[in-house]
Design a protein around this nucleic acid. Sequence first.
DNA 1: CGTGATTTTGATTCTCATCAACATCTGTGG
DNA 2: CCACAGATGTTGATGAGAATCAAAATCACG
Lengths: 256, 256
Amino acid sequence: MSHSHQIIDLHQVKASCADCNLSELCLPRGLHHEELVLLDSVSQRSRTLHRSDFVFESGDPFKAIYAVRSGIIKLYQDSDHGEERILGFYLPGELLGLDAIHSGRHTCSALAIETSSICSFPYDQLEEACFRIRGLHHQMCQLMSREISAENEHLLMLKNKTAEERIAGFLVNLSSRFQRLGYSGTDFKLPMSREEIGNYLGLTTETVSRLLSKMQRDEIIESSRRFISIKNLAYLQQVLSNHQQKHKGSEQNSVA
Amino acid sequence: MSHSHQIIDLHQVKASCADCNLSELCLPRGLHHEELVLLDSVSQRSRTLHRSDFVFESGDPFKAIYAVRSGIIKLYQDSDHGEERILGFYLPGELLGLDAIHSGRHTCSALAIETSSICSFPYDQLEEACFRIRGLHHQMCQLMSREISAENEHLLMLKNKTAEERIAGFLVNLSSRFQRLGYSGTDFKLPMSREEIGNYLGLTTETVSRLLSKMQRDEIIESSRRFISIKNLAYLQQVLSNHQQKHKGSEQNSVA
DNA sequence: CGTGATTTTGATTCTCATCAACATCTGTGG
DNA sequence: CCACAGATGTTGATGAGAATCAAAATCACG
């Protein structure tokens, strides 16, 4: 595949599932070596995307599902009036395009919000492979199920939670996903803008900004633009679970 | 369970997938006859549930996925403070429990809000069967994908829409699902209370009631308690797609 | 026929969106 | 290296929409 005397572009190197350090988070999870080799025969050469490049666009025919290998991908729908409505942010090891299996056509767009790399699995081949690789069918169902659970959580977030709870939930969620990937769960760079966070959480830019400022004042976090340092993760988790202790104003917030 | 000389309880008769009139909407879709026979060997005798009976409860270990055969099932989570948070209403042909595959444990409860009947497919056998029945794996992925799409839609509903738009969306959604099942898409009995509708849509009982009254005044619907008759489906659909034509008050609502 | 549950309607309050202005950052070209 | 422009983020003032609180009306059911 790579001619021996060519200079190798790291981003274009065939990303073998067998060698991938994400294999325990992604489709290959639980497969044996010979099964991994089979899976590799399905997966396509991984692709590098730069900021604002599309993985797929709304309206595209459904051809493949995609695994994020590095970077971060924003999934969104366009409303009838042109505003985007963000459904999620996808990190390494997470799958994109599962919602299109059903309709055969993408109804969302997926685009890189920073330099990312993406593996693709042509769906007809993948489905075929599920018959030859025992664990693959299993893992596909696992990952689809995980997606459903994640959406349930997002749903409950939007339905029942105040602006502060949503932001707390968002930070906690990002924190644990970064940690799972081996990054710091307390200090990280937000890959998305305030506007994107707000859009995702059903809030406005201003509200997001205000509440991050408030959390900063209350010493829950330190933040400066895109950088976040969580100083009191326990408090964020408590905000989440306490929810609306209706009629009981707990004097949590001091300072002025 | 049924001794030979007992009177047969229709609800306890083994519901064969091969004979089921929902087969084109449910797991058996697209399977050939001999495959259907195989699937039937996996599916359990269908079970009748009365109002307020559980299909499964939060905390139960994940054993099987369930297909609604008749009636309607409410899926919800309990918040930390005991209120229920409704994730969805499941009609015949729809699958329940998909979110638990991943964690091995149900985090939601599913209960019948009217007399219903349920088929269950023990998951380990079902997974096994996916290797023997070509179309079954396919159909499982289709149905999971559909679930993801449906949740996306619900999500966008909650995030970006006003109370009126949510109710319009809810009615349109119910209408088309009833129609798909061969019932009237314009005249039906709401199986759930105002409170349950509100909970599902992220609104209060009062708001739901007020807006249904308003739609009645505007002659979009006729409703009396649980009975709904949609008089102007086109208008409901328009409310949905128009969304927030911000800054442009279109004088749609007349009457006073 | 009465009792509790559900639904409807009204008055008030509160959260967050909207509108507006300013501050800060990023990146570009001079 | 600085100046500038556009994008992004912050903060403040005001208002709209739905929640909350309250109470009456209607219904379902024993």
